[in-house]
Amino acid sequence: MKLTLRIWRQASPDEPGRMVAYEVPDANPDMSFLELLDVLNERLTLEGDDPVSFDHDCREGICGACGVVINGQAHGPRERTTTCQLHIREFNDGDVIDVEPWRSVAFGVIKDLMVDRSGLDRIIQAGGYISAPTGSAPEAHSTPVPKPIADTAFDNATCIGCGACVAACPNGSSMLFTSAKVAHLNSLPQGAPERAERVLNLVEAMDAEGFGGCTNTGECTVACPKGIPMDSIATLNREYLRASLGRK
């Protein structure tokens, strides 16, 4: 397959970026999207050009490191798929494909397709945990958790922190990311003691990081490679209201 990639090139945070077109004449339908970039980078290296920088690691769709906007969609056209798990068979011979970094006020571009997502870490640091120092845990079966609750917690805990929700949101909001953590921990009996404080702190941190507000457009859930649902945002809003009213 012959593909043309138009890739965002930006040398550093302070310099302006621009789209640069590259032809890849030897793309294979079974390649992953990142393998396509690898092939391009091998060529650029040999030609003396600067290879394209992009974040990636596990290449199994679970570490959350990779993520680019492909033809305007975070992680590209296939539903519930990270960039590393997107394959070239989703495209047609001769396609021109736009490749850009996550775009958001809270995610500054570091170089080319790499952005700074440390704001998401700081949201978790603000209270996205259960305080259970090592060694202090009761026997695991002392607190049964009904299966539907365990399943809800799990579904939300599958968030990989890639930031696609933020990139897809017209407001640059990290509401889906934050709500997944609230829904994961606040639904469990182990998370109950810190329930109110947790949601208040997470929302405060989210705002402080410069993420936008949520207007329920739902673009985030479409982009989310793990299918975190809009319900989680409703859960966050409910938890936030409950905590704000000071009910225990």
Binding site: Y129, I130, A132, T134, G135, S136, A137, P138, E139, A140, T143, P144, V145, P146, K147, A150, D151, A153, F154, A157, H184, L185, L188, Q190, G191
Partner: peptide
């Protein structure tokens, strides 16, 4: 296992 359950790790349950 005890430690992870206390941290909120959502293991599969019956």
């Amino acid at each position: 296992i005890d430690q992870c359950v206390a941290q909120g790790v959502p293991f599969a349950r019956e």
